[in-house]
């Protein structure tokens, strides 16, 4: 398949990219790894007239630790997230999640920022960003702002990102006791249901839990009911199973397609919530 014709510009720096984006008057479409965009262009489901390539911008990629906070550059490819020693040590759920995306070649090219900006309803990263309560850092040619993941994902393929803005990085406090569980769609490898769970436990009590869900509704959402039910509980498998039963019960408009009906998807939310929580608990045990 052949995409429609477009103009192409390569940005040499973030400022350059922002200037080009701004000058394009809304015509410019950013491309980094291109692994969400290019297949759509080949099928002519997306026909941008100008691509601005941000893949070579120095410092847009990379994983950094600063004052107890982790930052992943938006240009970091999934493979580098999946294999990052820093993430593996401090926040393995992010690496685990990245390792479930697509396949090795896709992970070698696809980027965190691209995945978040595209916001496929079945993408994996959004769930874990919600569970980590991550900050999504944005820049335009005139301003910088920070949006919390829970405010970022708004609807199908719709996020809080203006046409002249670029995602520069995500930042979050690492959580070791966190895990991602995913029911794969066999053909595409996207999530039919994907749940990321992060637990904050001290003195033998779950102080707070954050659970992100992808694949089930129009965009990734937090399972606040389950989170509330877990707060104050002992970190046991039983408590988690108990709380997981509530998962998704308050969600409306569950997705249904040939791979999984609404009924089945709804039923899988508690299952994968419990599995994610069990995974988080297992890390808690290893930790202590």
């Amino acid at each position: 398949m052949i995409p429609t014709a477009f103009d192409y510009q390569r940005a040499t720096s973030l400022d350059d990219a922002l200037a080009k984006l701004s000058a394009s008057n809304g015509a410019g479409k950013l491309i980094a790894g291109g692994h969400s965009l290019v297949p759509l262009m080949k099928l002519r489901l997306s026909e941008p007239t100008m691509l601005i390539d941000i893949a070579r911008i120095p410092d847009l990629a990379g994983i950094r630790e600063q004052d107890g906070t982790l930052e992943i550059g938006a240009g970091t490819v999934h493979h580098d997230v999946a294999t990052s020693p820093v993430l593996r040590q401090h926040c393995p759920v992010v690496a685990d999640t990245a390792a479930t995306i697509g396949d090795p070649q896709v992970r070698n090219r696809g980027t965190l920022g691209g995945s978040l900006a595209h916001a496929d309803p079945a993408a994996d990263y959004p769930a874990v960003m919600l569970a980590l309560d991550a900050e999504i850092h944005l820049r335009s040619s005139t301003a910088a702002r920070v949006v919390l993941a829970r405010d970022f994902f708004q609807n199908v393929l719709t996020v809080d990102l203006a046409p002249d803005e670029i995602i520069t990085a995500v930042r979050f406090a690492p959580v070791r006791a966190a895990s991602y569980a995913k029911l794969y769609q066999r053909a595409s490898r996207f999530a039919i249901v994907g749940v990321a769970a992060a637990l904050d436990v001290s003195d033998g009590v779950i102080r707070s839990a954050r659970i992100g869900l992808t694949g089930a509704v129009s965009h990734a959402v937090r399972l606040t009911t389950v989170e509330a039910a877990l707060a104050g509980c002992e970190p046991t498998s039983r408590a988690c199973a108990e709380a997981a039963r509530l998962a998704g019960s308050d969600l409306e408009d569950i997705n249904g397609d040939i791979h999984a009906s609404e009924t089945y998807r709804r039923a899988m939310i508690p299952v994968f919530t419990r599995r994610a929580l069990d995974g988080a608990l297992a890390r808690l045990t290893v930790q202590s």
């Binding site: 099928l43 066999r186 053909a187 595409s188 040939i258 791979h259």
Partner: peptide
């Protein structure tokens, strides 16, 4: 286990790519 070519009731293929046909 995993292969099935399917159509909608109005004859549109719904497994017309490797995204949906495993």
């Amino acid at each position: 286990m995993i292969e099935e070519f399917r159509y909608s009731e109005d004859g549109q293929p719904v497994t017309g790519s490797f995204m949906d046909y495993a």
